[in-house]
Amino acid sequence: MPGVDHCLQEAMTIPGAVGASIVDYTTGFPVATTGAAPNSDHEAAAAGTAEVVQAANSRSLFVSAVPHDLLEDLIITTAGGYHLLRMVQTEFDSRLVLYVWLDRVRGNLAVARRQMQRLADDLVAR
């Protein structure tokens, strides 16, 4: 049975993964974490993640321009790494996002995105 911890372990097997977490983006709280975090601080990283998600959700016009066109992924690339955020869609009320930090040299954006999509779906699928 894939639980939260199993999901994060799987996320760490994505090529180039350095750290992963599941973040509640209403409160900016890391529900579960593993591996490294930017500045070695998972809580601060989660708070930052939450702000990015909220900004994308509520302050950018290209999200939700069409009804039911919901936010799926956020991908931020920096000189040294890739930061991928995947919304976890639960049927019950929760506002969660799966975050994976990839090393730029070893990571492959397309592969990572596909795998995160699968992980987020497996976590809540029947």
Partner: peptide, 14 residues
């Protein structure tokens, strides 16, 4: 799923 249950319990608990 185990994932759903854990996430739901974590959310409700906090």
């Amino acid at each position: 799923t185990q994932g759903e249950l854990e996430l739901c319990v974590l959310g409700a608990t906090y």
